[in-house]
Amino acid sequence: MGLSLHFVVDPQGWCCVGAIFFIWLYNTLFVPKLILFPRFEEGHISIAAIWAYYLTSIFCVISLLRASTADPGKLQDTPKIPLTEQELWELCNKCNMMRPKRSHHCSRCGHCVRRMDHHCPWINNCVGEDNHWLFLQLCFYTQLLSGYTLVLDFCHYYYFLPLKAINWDMFIFRHELALLRISTFMGIVMFGGMCSLFYTQIMGILTDTTTIEKMANCCDEISRARKPWQQTFSEVFGTRWKILWFIPFRRRQPLRVSYYFANHV
């Protein structure tokens, strides 16, 4: 929890994170140079459009880096079990360690994670109690950035007037069509994939159910939502201040209300 770094040694995961980072870097470099800056110089868009793009891009990459390196909720080797919660702990049959209920053993990482949702190769990390909020931010800002990119690509060809004062001898303008087609393709893939994933995550939070519990079909008792949506989201993000749910730079602090309460009353 906090700002401590957590790395998973998995070459396949590193490749997945590298692919996501490449898509982010590609669009962050070429979309402003091909569309935003030339359109701003010719008066087609305002400076606010450029600031909005870069702000969304920064939030997107910060969420990616933090979700990839944050501790998802790895259990300590000798966890301290509060006397009032002993009945809420169980023995893991894989690592023979005591863990809170709703924890799961990740075979790829080799340890148990509190309230583990799933292991995501695209961030090379588990999604658990302590970094679930960062994963949600990553999904949100990725679909926001990819959607914004698709709108800019569309307007560049079908809405804005043709550019006049540009240097066609530059590489990026000579290959403008190919570069923007690649950008559009990546935008469609990322936007479609992230919308589906984000919807699944939101529904899981609303029903207070993890992805693993859904796949295991063992969550009949858990899937009945007994908390208001504000409470379930506040427990995931670690704060009741809704504006802070969108800020990836802060430190998460767990709420005083235990997330086990609703399932063991």
Results as ranks from 00 to 15, higher is better:
His44Asp: 07
Ser68Thr: 15
Met97Cys: 08
Gly43Pro: 07
Trp51Gly: 14
Thr78Val: 11
Leu91Asp: 11
Thr78Asn: 15
Glu90Cys: 11
Asp71Ala: 11
Leu65Arg: 10
Glu85Trp: 05
Arg102Gly: 00
Pro72Tyr: 02
Leu65Phe: 15
Ala67Arg: 01
Pro100Thr: 04
Asp71Trp: 01
His44Pro: 02
Pro100Cys: 12
Ser103Lys: 02
Cys60Ile: 01
His104Phe: 13
Leu83Asp: 15
Leu75Asp: 06
Tyr53Glu: 02
Gly43Thr: 10
His44Gly: 09
Gly43Lys: 10
His105Met: 08
Pro82Ser: 04
Ser68Gln: 04
Thr78Tyr: 06
Arg66Ile: 06
Lys101Tyr: 06
Leu88Pro: 01
Tyr53Asn: 03
Gly73Asn: 07
Ala52Thr: 14
Lys80Ser: 15
Cys95Gln: 02
Ser57Ile: 06
Asn93Glu: 14
Phe59Glu: 00
Leu91Met: 15
Cys92Val: 02
His105Asn: 06
Asp71Gly: 03
Ala70Ile: 05
Arg102Val: 01
Glu85Leu: 05
Ile47Asp: 07
Gln86His: 09
Gly73His: 01
Lys101Gln: 14
Gly43Ala: 10
Ala52Ile: 12
Arg66Pro: 03
Pro100Ala: 05
Glu87Leu: 13
His44Lys: 15
Trp89Lys: 03
Trp89Phe: 09
Leu65Glu: 10
Ile62Met: 05
Asp77Arg: 11
Ser68Ile: 04
Glu90Trp: 07
Tyr54Gly: 08
Ile50Lys: 06
Ser57His: 01
Ala52Tyr: 12
Asn96Ala: 07
